[in-house]
Computed example of a mutant assay.
Amino acid sequence: MSIDSTDMDKSPLEFHVYSKEEMAAFQAIHLTLTSAILLVLLAEKAQGSENTKSCKLIEETEKARKVVSRLEPITNRTFSVKAQSGQDSYTYLFQVCGNAGQTADGAVVQKSDDGNEIVIGKYTAMEAFGGSDWVMLIYTDGSAYGEHCNKEKRRAIVMISCERGITAGDLSVVEEEREKLNNCFYLFELDSSAVCPLIPSHLSAGSILLIVGFSLLAVYLIGGFLYQRLVVGAKGMEQFPHLTFWQEIGSLTADGCDFVCRCRGSQEEPPTYRGVATEPLGEEPEERDDHLLPM
Rank of each mutant, 00 (worst) to 15 (best):
M1P: 04
S2E: 06
D4S: 14
S5I: 05
S5E: 13
T6R: 10
M8I: 12
M8Q: 04
D9M: 11
S11W: 02
L13D: 10
F15Y: 08
H16I: 02
I29Y: 06
T32G: 01
T34E: 15
L38P: 00
L41D: 15
L41C: 13
N51W: 06
C55F: 11
C55H: 02
I58C: 05
K63E: 15
K63Q: 11
R70H: 05
R70K: 14
E72C: 02
I74C: 07
R77A: 07
F79V: 00
V81T: 12
T91H: 01
L93K: 10
F94H: 03
Q95A: 12
G98W: 01
G101Y: 02
Q102F: 02
G106M: 00
G106C: 14
V119S: 04
V119N: 06
K122A: 13
K122F: 03
A125M: 08
F129D: 07
S132V: 08
M136T: 04
T140C: 11
D141I: 02
S143E: 12
A144P: 04
G146L: 11
E147D: 12
N150C: 05
I160M: 03
S161P: 00
C162T: 00
R164P: 01
A168H: 05
G169Y: 02
L171G: 04
S172F: 01
R178S: 12
N182Y: 12
N183S: 14
F185L: 11
F188H: 07
E189C: 01
D191W: 00
S192P: 00
V195Y: 01
I199Q: 14
S204G: 14
S215F: 12
V219Y: 13
L221N: 11
L221R: 12
L221H: 08
L226V: 05
Y227P: 01
Q228P: 00
G233L: 03
G236R: 12
P241L: 11
L243E: 07
W246V: 12
G250D: 01
D258M: 05
F259V: 00
C263Y: 14
C263K: 15
G265R: 08
P270E: 13
A277W: 02
P280M: 05
P285H: 13
E286D: 11
D289G: 09
H291N: 08
M295I: 05
M295V: 06
